[in-house]
């Protein structure tokens, strides 16, 4: 059995890679993918905690399922909007869509 710490390290890495990507990438799709990484790390966390720490129940698994579903819905909307941004700006780079500034 792989100890829980290993999974934690993996999920933490995923999480921070996601955060880093979200902050540094300038491409909308890449940002979306970074966010998905974060969500995946969360899913991993829930599944692992459920399986290794609280094997008698299913709450974490259910949470994972729902979180996957919700993530897909979010992605669908985000993609639709990104396509729209592309149609308006002919670009999907954050830099080029900053019409609005401080």
């Amino acid at each position: 059995m792989i100890p829980v710490e290993f999974y934690l390290v993996l999920s933490t890495l995923l999480f921070f890679i996601g955060v880093f990507g979200f902050v540094t990438r300038r491409n909308l799709v890449a940002m979306l993918i970074s966010v998905e990484l974060i969500l995946n790390s969360v899913d991993l966390n829930f599944a692992v905690f459920n399986r290794l720490l609280f094997p008698g129940q299913l709450e974490g698994m259910f949470f994972t399922l729902f979180s996957i579903g919700v993530a897909a819905a979010e992605t669908a909307v985000a993609l639709a909007i990104i396509i729209n941004v592309y149609r308006n700006y002919r670009s999907d780079q954050v830099n080029s869509i900053e019409n609005m500034k401080f």
Binding site: I68, G69, A72, A73, A76, L79
Partner: peptide
């Protein structure tokens, strides 16, 4: 693709 994404998840 987006329609699929939504229906498939459901």
């Amino acid at each position: 693709a987006i329609l699929f994404l939504m229906f498939d998840i459901e």
